[in-house]
């Protein structure tokens, strides 16, 4: 550390401002994707599974629910894998156009 740098504090590197800016961006982004997985998803998943089970025996682990946000709308994706003995696989994609919260 140079003598002058130490004496004239104003010449020091202001990396904290950069840290703050980067954090604000990444934290906002990650909070956004957290909110993209609302509280009702587990219940929705359970009820959907019950409906499917009325017709086909599927396991709890065989249903995947994803909610993604693309532009101004949200996409709810259901992925249900049917058992091997019936070589059919139902893939059901449904777009839900909700009010753009983002």
């Amino acid at each position: 550390m140079g003598l002058f740098e130490n004496f004239f504090r104003s010449s020091a590197n202001k990396s904290a401002a950069l840290a703050k800016e980067r954090l604000q961006i990444i934290v906002a982004h990650e909070r956004g994707s957290r909110r993209g997985s609302p509280d009702y998803l587990p219940a929705l998943k359970k009820e959907l599974l019950e409906v499917v089970r009325k017709y086909v025996p599927v396991d709890q682990s065989q249903i995947k629910v994803h909610l993604d946000r693309e532009g101004g709308y949200e996409v709810l994706e259901l992925n249900i894998t049917l058992p091997d003995d019936e070589p059919r696989s139902v893939r059901n994609q449904e777009g839900l156009t909700g009010s753009s919260r983002g």
Partner: peptide, 16 residues
């Protein structure tokens, strides 16, 4: 270090 601007300050962390 926070005063010199090379460490996040208390206010910075609180704001985030």
């Amino acid at each position: 270090r926070a005063d010199r601007g090379d460490m996040l300050s208390v206010e910075d962390v609180l704001e985030i």
